[in-house]
Amino acid sequence: MPTLILAIAELFGTALWFTPNAVLPDLMALWTLTPADLGWLTGAVQGGFLLGTLIIGLSGLADRVDASRLFAACCLLGALSNALLPLAGGLQGAVTLRVITGMCLAGIYPVGMKLMVGWMPGRSGVGLAWLVGMLVLGTALPHGLRGLTALDEITLSWRGGIWSASLLAVLGGIMVWRLGEAPCQTRATPVRGLRLAGLSAFRIRHFRHAAGAYFGHMWELYTLWALLPLLLATRFPSLGTAELAFASFALIAIGGPCCWIGGAFSARLGSRRVAQFALAGSSLCCALYPLLSELPATGLVAFLALWSALAVVDSPQFSALSAHACPASIVGSALTMQNAIGFAISMLSLLTLIPLWQTTGPWIAWLMLPGPIIGLWCLHGYTRRQDTAPSTT
């Protein structure tokens, strides 16, 4: 039951992540924005997340306070910054609020990983798969909320989608606050001189390979998620607001159950094999999309669903491989630093590639292709001998 509560709370908390993407047409009309501004809105969250992970990881904050209280506080502050988005008045104010939201998400996602490991000793690989799956559903959730609000013919009903996401984040924070810490998890005492332990992990060969594969994966993933509504709207201009929102929700959300399935397979095949399969599949999808972008509706949506699933199913497996490669004393710092660099790469990808979408069209997929290819190359150096159960610390 505690793991289920934590997984649902992670879903509610991460609903804040892609909120403006779900209501982009409304924001574009209200503030006279261009499609390229989507990159700034999404990139601002990634930048805030990067800053937040660096602050938490290098200051030892997660070890100085109860992780459950930190999680809850970040949910509440993130909900507030998200709820103020309709009052931002333009792109500059919106970007500022999204940076704050991203910083709060740094206390939700990585801290949630720490909590899940505490509540699932000995099964952290499966637990991380459930957690990332909930992150995927949380990312898709704003699109679903937008679709529901679009069904009502109420002026400016899109605000309801934003505020609904904030309400869910508040509920998630309350759930974890009441749950508290795992009985077997005690607050660690920070050791002087080890605050930069996350950086020292890069001296470990197998960690470098696992982290490098994760970095390649991050070049593709969030750009793909940001592009999905635009790809659908361009290919099917007759789609209504609700139809587009629900379709975007389904295409992103499919990655959640696929992460859980991948976690089950990793118990038998190992995390490395699952990650290699997903990277190879998403590479193939990147290569083929420009050639298949004119498929009939059913075929194209099926292809996009497959691509979306393959792009994320490997994410928890990278964390499992990285955790296994590191000594127990630095696993938390190493994963936090890996997240920080990975999301910096995703921010760079968003700010670089999204503005090019108008000129490249479906060929933008080839600009995402180097990410999973580099990931495959890096993961090749993670030897099979190392591909066993991940550390539970």
Rank of each mutant, 00 (worst) to 15 (best):
L11R: 02
F18Q: 13
N21T: 14
P25E: 00
L27D: 04
M28D: 07
A29W: 06
L33W: 02
Q46R: 08
G60Y: 01
D66T: 14
L84G: 13
V95W: 00
M103F: 01
M103Q: 01
K114F: 07
P121H: 08
L135P: 12
L145T: 07
R159Y: 04
W163Y: 02
A169F: 00
W177P: 05
E181T: 12
C184Q: 15
C184A: 15
V191L: 10
L196M: 15
A197Y: 10
A201N: 13
R205D: 14
H217F: 07
L228S: 09
P229Y: 00
L230Y: 09
A247W: 08
S248I: 00
F249Q: 04
I252H: 08
A267D: 14
S282I: 12
C285K: 08
A287Q: 10
Y289K: 11
L291Q: 15
L295W: 01
T298Y: 04
S308V: 07
S308D: 08
S315F: 11
A325Y: 03
I330G: 10
S333G: 01
A334W: 00
A340N: 04
F343Y: 14
A344M: 13
I345F: 09
M347Q: 03
G371W: 00
G371P: 12
I374K: 02
C378R: 03
C378H: 11
C378Q: 12
Q386E: 14
